[in-house]
């Protein structure tokens, strides 16, 4: 099952990133939000059925610039993890995020998303409340927003659950973050009926920041060298640069840039 194109070292590296991205002591969205924004005010609820604790969202100042911030939150202990559903977002979470994105658009504020999820919440209530529709709606509406959207994958970028906050003008990844269509365990158990093959499959899926940068799927990798506060400073610098770049574009150009970014993936395919 191992092909020649994926070397032993690549497999070890990919699996190592999976473990680092999932480490319980890893910094979380809220740590970053506290460090790089001022006057953060959390806003709750989807105005329909509830408030999803896997998503922390609100308004804040980024230096002199007003912004809307949306982050998937995990926690650093078993208890905290349980409280925020291990970062697995429910439909009401995606709808809360979308509500605040539309609010951001109304007030012409940029939107900054921090992605960290193993995937959308798999459960009876989530299916009842239209998980598929909620994700689809976010993909559709995010494409259309006329203010800048930046998405930063800080840990796990798990499939549609991550993409539903990831339709952005720029997609940035932390050095040890991962982004994948399926978890290595899920893929291994479907393809090989053996979830223990996950480390090898992680290599095959090419889910590391470097692979995704080489593919042109993401735009920038932020180094995780040094202390947490130095990592957060680099995240801040990166946002600063991207917001400056986006400030040169009008609403329609921002929307067009975002749509084209995804439109171009696969447009080289030849048909008869």
């Amino acid at each position: 099952m191992r092909d020649k194109s994926t070397t032993e070292a690549e497999i070890n590296n990919a699996w190592n990133k999976v473990l680092l991205a999932r480490k319980i002591t890893r910094f979380r969205s809220l740590d970053i939000i506290k460090h790089i924004f001022n006057s953060f005010i959390e806003l709750h609820g989807d105005r329909n059925i509830g408030d999803d604790r896997s998503i922390i969202a609100g308004i804040a100042m980024f230096d002199q610039q007003a912004v809307t911030v949306i982050g998937q939150q995990k926690g650093n202990s078993q208890k905290e993890m349980e409280y925020c559903q291990y970062g697995m977002t429910k439909p009401e979470g995606y709808r809360k995020a979308l509500r605040l994105m539309k609010q951001a658009e109304k007030f012409r504020r940029p939107i900054i998303c921090f992605i960290d999820t193993p995937g959308a919440f798999p459960g009876v209530s989530a299916e009842k409340n239209g998980q598929a529709e909620a994700i689809a709606r976010n993909l559709y509406e995010m494409a259309n927003i006329t203010v800048p959207i930046l998405s930063i994958i800080i840990g796990e970028g798990g499939s549609g659950g991550a993409l539903a906050l990831g339709v952005a003008n720029r997609v940035i990844m932390l050095e040890n973050a991962i982004y994948s269509v399926v978890s290595p365990e899920g893929c291994a158990s479907i393809l090989y009926k053996d979830s223990r093959k996950a480390p090898v499959v992680a290599g095959h899926l090419h889910l590391t920041a470097i692979d995704l940068k080489n593919y042109g799927i993401i735009d920038e990798i932020i180094s995780e060298e040094g202390t947490e506060s130095s990592i957060f400073d680099r995240i801040k610098q990166s946002i600063e640069g991207e917001l400056y770049r986006c400030s040169q574009l009008d609403g329609d150009e921002l929307r067009k840039e975002r749509i084209e970014r995804y439109r171009n993936i696969g447009s080289e395919i030849v048909f008869s």
């Binding site: 494409a143 549609g160 993409l163 982004y179 994948s180 593919y215 799927i217 993936i265 696969g266």
Partner: peptide, 8 residues
């Protein structure tokens, strides 16, 4: 990841 991007 290329298949995930097709959703968007």
């Amino acid at each position: 990841i290329f298949s995930l991007m097709q959703m968007a």
